[in-house]
């Protein structure tokens, strides 16, 4: 386990992606936030940080952001503006602003050399795979299927396409989203036959479908759960995931675990998303 540290960092850049959207008061929906590199000894793709503006007063709540990339100079986070009291404030950060960060937190994705690895990403779920491609010893083994609602200019897809094989599927008309799910399932079947693994990140509805298919195929699959995390350290109990009978610690099988500390990356067979999302199993 990598020990997290809490530190104050400086924003070096905050770049909006795509076009401003009227529904958000003219602001952009997606941003790549770059901070100076924290003094981490190590980190894993799939892990996250907790972040809050330093000068936000006493009522600023921190929000979790998945780590996109870590370079020798910087920590890059890619996020979607989603909430009134959360990520909208991050969109207003500018170079020179100070932020409080604690991390790296949680579990990371499995990295297997010489193993065909299917990366399934939907919308902002593309974020952790940039760092994953950076760290993978054998990027030729990687192939990404990326489904998205908005034009590809809204995402850091072009920068990633140079490092790994990538296929885009954009929703243009109603039903395209389902087509993305169908293609994802077909590719999972292929990777099962080729002895590969699958890693997925995106909205919970999407991950639920991947989870179901992974169990059906018995394809080794990891999911980065985007549950609502709050404290990031396992204290608030805001993010709970139910384990399956396969959970490594038998004492905790079938019980709730904290997504932020036992995850956010879980093996599909270790968790029970029917118990987490009972409305999907009706």
């Amino acid at each position: 386990m990598i020990s997290p540290i809490r530190t104050e960092l400086t924003v070096t850049d905050n770049v909006p992606f795509g076009q401003p959207e009227p529904g958000l008061g003219g602001t952009h929906r997606y941003y790549a936030l770059t901070l100076e590199r924290p003094a981490w000894k190590n980190w894993e793709p799939g892990q996250f940080i907790m972040l809050r503006p330093k000068d936000g007063g006493t009522v600023e709540w921190a929000r979790p952001l998945t780590i996109c990339r870590v370079t020798s100079q910087s920590l890059v986070l890619f996020f979607r503006v989603a909430s009134e009291y959360g990520t909208d404030r991050f969109a207003r950060l500018r170079g020179g602003d100070k932020v409080i960060v604690w991390g790296p937190l949680g579990t990371g994705f499995e990295i297997r050399s010489n193993t065909p690895t299917l990366l399934l990403a939907r919308d902002a779920g593309i974020a952790p795979f940039a760092g994953y491609a950076d760290m993978h010893p054998d990027p030729a083994c990687l192939s990404m299927l990326f489904g998205h609602q908005h034009p590809s200019s809204h995402y850091p897809a072009d920068a990633m396409a140079s490092r790994l094989d990538m296929e885009h599927l954009r929703d243009r008309v109603p039903g395209d989203c389902e087509e993305f799910y169908r293609v994802s399932a077909r590719k999972m079947q292929e990777y099962k036959e080729n002895g590969g693994i699958c890693l997925a990140c995106g909205p919970m509805d999407f991950l639920y479908g991947v989870w179901k298919k992974a169990l059906e195929l018995e394809l080794p699959t990891q999911l980065l759960l985007s549950a609502r995390m709050n404290c990031g350290v396992g204290a608030c109990l805001g993010c709970s995931t139910i384990t399956s009978k396969h959970w490594p610690d038998p004492i905790r099988a079938g019980l709730p675990v904290h997504t932020c500390t036992s995850g956010p990356v879980f093996w599909a067979r270790d968790i029970d998303l029917d118990a987490v999302m009972p409305e999907r199993n009706m």
């Binding site: 009522v59 709540w61 909430s83 009134e84 009291y85 959360g86 549950a227 609502r228 709050n230 608030c236 109990l237 805001g238 993010c239 709970s240 139910i242 019980l255 709730p256 987490v276 009972p278």
Partner: peptide
């Protein structure tokens, strides 16, 4: 097992 998700919502000056 606790309450169903979501369990936390930010509010002005509170949680």
């Amino acid at each position: 097992a606790g309450s169903p998700l979501p369990r936390i919502a930010a509010a002005p000056a509170g949680l």
